[in-house]
Amino acid sequence: MKVPDCVKSRMRPFAPSPTRRTLLRDMAALALGAVSPLSFAQHGGLGLVTPPIRLDDIWLVDQTGRKRLLNDSLRQGITALQTVYTGCGTVCPLQGALFSAVQERIPGIRSGHPVQLLSVGIDPLSDSPSALRAWLARFHAGPAWNAATPALADVDRMRVALSGSTLPLGDIADHSTQIYCFDANAMLRWRSADLPRVDDVCDVLGALGRA
Rank of each mutant, 00 (worst) to 15 (best):
A134D: 10
W135K: 12
L136G: 05
L136F: 07
L136R: 05
L136T: 01
L136K: 03
L136E: 05
A137N: 15
A137C: 09
R138A: 15
F139I: 13
F139S: 08
H140T: 15
H140Y: 15
A141E: 07
A141Q: 06
A141V: 11
A141T: 11
G142S: 08
G142K: 09
P143G: 02
P143S: 05
P143E: 06
P143K: 07
A144L: 03
N146M: 10
N146L: 06
A147D: 07
A147V: 00
A147R: 01
A147W: 04
A147F: 02
A148P: 06
T149F: 06
T149N: 06
T149P: 05
P150V: 06
P150I: 04
L152C: 11
L152R: 14
A153D: 13
A153E: 11
D154F: 08
D154N: 14
V155S: 02
V155N: 02
V155A: 03
V155L: 05
V155M: 05
D156G: 12
R157F: 07
R157Y: 07
R157M: 14
R157C: 08
R157N: 12
M158Q: 04
M158H: 03
M158N: 02
R159S: 07
R159E: 07
R159K: 12
V160L: 15
V160M: 12
V160H: 10
V160K: 12
A161Y: 04
A161G: 12
L162N: 08
S163R: 11
G164H: 09
G164A: 09
G164C: 05
G164S: 02
S165D: 14
S165A: 13
T166Y: 08
L167E: 14
L167A: 14
L167V: 13
L167R: 15
L167Q: 15
P168F: 12
P168Q: 09
P168R: 08
L169P: 09
L169H: 11
L169V: 09
G170D: 15
G170V: 09
G170K: 13
D171V: 06
D171S: 10
D171Q: 08
D171Y: 04
I172Q: 04
I172W: 05
I172R: 09
I172M: 08
A173V: 14
D174Y: 14
D174S: 15
D174Q: 13
S176T: 13
S176A: 13
T177S: 13
T177F: 03
Q178F: 12
I179Y: 03
I179G: 03
I179W: 01
Y180R: 03
Y180A: 02
Y180N: 03
Y180D: 06
C181T: 06
C181A: 11
D183T: 00
D183P: 01
A184L: 01
A184N: 05
N185R: 10
A186K: 01
A186H: 00
M187F: 01
M187L: 05
M187N: 05
L188A: 00
L188T: 00
L188I: 00
R189G: 00
W190Q: 00
W190P: 01
W190C: 01
R191K: 11
R191E: 07
S192E: 07
S192W: 05
S192G: 08
A193D: 11
A193W: 06
D194F: 13
D194T: 10
P196D: 10
P196G: 13
P196H: 07
P196R: 03
R197S: 08
R197L: 06
R197H: 06
V198T: 13
D199F: 04
D199H: 09
D200N: 09
